[in-house]
C-alpha cells in the first residue's frame, strides 16, 4: 500500500482500541509518519484524558491548536468549549453562557445521552469540512466508550426528532459513514482479551454505525528470532563454553520468549480468522517510557508496515 494513498484515503482517521494497547502512542507515530510524507497533520485529543501531549514533551493540549512537530499540529476538544462555540455560531446569543453556568446544559445533556459526544464529533466534522488538515487523526476514547461515542449520532436522531442537535447528528453520521471522508483504525496487542474486544468493537462499528474500518494495528509484537530451544546443544555446535549461570539464564529466557512469541502468533492467526482486515504489526518498543526520542523510529516502522501491506 502506498503510504500517501493510505493517509489521504480519508481526511479523518479515528484511532480506537482497548485501554493500555498503545493507541495514543500509535496515533502520534501515525501523525509523524504522515508528516514525513509532506502531509499536513492535525492530532485531536478528546476531553484531555490522554498521554498525547506527554509524547511531545508537553503538559497538556488546549482547545486552540498548536504545533507539536514539523507538519504536526494538535488540539484537545472539550464538549463544553465545543458547545459554547456551537451556541455562539447558531444564534443562541447571550443565554448560552447562562445555560452553561447554571449547570442546566450539563444536567439536561445527561438525559439525552450522546449530547456531549455529538458536540465533539460535530467539531471534528466542522474541522474536516473546513479542510483543517490533510490528515486528521483522532485519539478516540477506549473501546467500550468508543462505540458509545461513535454511536451517539444514531441514538440522538431517534431521541431528538428536530432542531439543531438533530441536524448536527445527521451531518456527523454522514461523515462517519462515508469511507472517502472517515475511517477507523483499530489498535490491539497480540493478546486474547484485547483481540476479543477489538473484534466486538469492529462488528459494532461496522454493522451498527456503518463506519469504514481501515487496517488493524497490532502493537507490541515480539519478533520471531527463532531462538534456540536447546542452549546446551547450540553452544556445543558453536564451539562456545557457557558456565552454568549463563546457560540457565539463557534457557529460562529462551523458554519464556518462545512461549510468548508462540502465544502472540496464535493470537494473530485467531485475529486473522475473526476479522478479515489488513493487519499492520508494530514491534515491541525498547522502552517502557513514552520518550519522544522513539517516535521517529515508530513512524518509520509504521511507514514500512504500510508499504508492505
Amino acid at each position: 500500500m502506498d503510504p500517501s494513498a493510505f493517509f489521504t484515503s480519508s481526511a479523518v482517521h479515528i484511532v480506537a482500541g482497548k485501554g493500555g494497547v498503545g493507541k495514543t502512542t500509535l496515533t502520534a507515530g501515525l501523525g509523524l509518519a504522515a508528516a514525513s510524507l509532506g502531509l499536513d497533520v492535525l492530532l485531536v485529543e478528546i476531553e484531555g484524558r490522554g498521554g498525547l501531549p506527554g509524547l511531545f514533551g508537553r503538559n497538556r493540549l488546549h482547545y486552540r491548536e498548536e504545533t507539536l512537530a514539523q507538519g504536526v499540529r494538535a488540539r484537545s476538544l472539550s464538549a463544553e468549549e465545543a458547545l459554547v462555540e456551537y451556541l455562539a455560531d447558531h444564534g443562541f446569543g447571550p443565554l448560552a453562557r447562562r445555560m452553561i453556568d447554571t449547570g442546566l446544559v450539563e444536567v439536561v445533556s445527561r438525559g439525552a445521552p450522546g449530547m456531549k459526544d455529538i458536540l465533539l464529533l460535530g467539531k471534528i466534522k466542522q474541522l474536516e469540512r473546513a479542510g483543517a488538515a490533510d490528515v486528521i487523526l483522532v485519539d478516540a476514547p477506549a473501546s467500550g466508550h468508543a462505540v458509545t461515542f461513535l454511536r451517539s449520532p444514531r441514538g440522538l436522531l431517534d431521541a431528538v426528532a428536530s432542531g439543531p442537535i438533530n441536524s448536527q447528528a445527521r451531518e456527523v453520521l454522514e461523515l462517519l459513514t462515508d469511507a472517502a471522508r472517515c475511517q477507523v483504525l483499530l489498535v490491539t496487542t497480540a493478546e486474547e482479551t484485547p483481540i476479543n474486544e477489538l473484534v466486538e468493537t469492529a462488528f459494532s462499528l461496522e454493522d451498527e454505525i456503518g463506519l469504514h474500518l481501515g487496517p488493524v494495528l497490532v502493537n507490541g509484537v515480539l519478533p520471531d528470532r527463532h531462538l534456540p530451544a536447546d542452549v546446551r546443544r547450540a553452544a556445543k555446535r558453536a564451539g562456545v563454553v557457557l558456565d552454568v549461570g549463563v546457560r540457565r539464564a539463557l534457557e529460562t529466557a529462551s523458554a519464556y520468549v518462545r512461549r510468548r512469541v508462540d502465544a502472540q502468533q496464535s493470537q494473530l492467526s485467531r485475529l486473522d480468522e475473526l476479522l478479515p482486515l489488513t493487519r499492520l504489526t508494530v514491534a515491541q518498543r525498547p522502552t517502557a517510557g513514552l520518550a519522544h526520542a522513539h517516535l521517529p523510529a515508530l513512524a518509520d516502522e509504521l511507514l514500512a508496515a504500510i508499504r508492505a501491506a
Binding site: R225, P228, D230, V231, R237, A253, S254, P286
Partner: peptide, 29 residues
C-alpha cells in the same frame, strides 16, 4: 536473526547471539 534449528556452527552461534541479545533487551527494559 537466530537460526537455532539451522545446521552448522555459524547458525548455532547466531542463535546464541540472538538469544543473548533478547535477554539483554529484557534486562534494559
Amino acid at each position: 536473526e537466530g537460526e537455532g534449528e539451522a545446521e552448522g556452527g555459524a547458525g548455532a552461534a547466531a542463535g546464541l547471539a540472538a538469544l543473548a541479545a533478547a535477554v539483554l533487551d529484557q534486562h534494559d527494559l
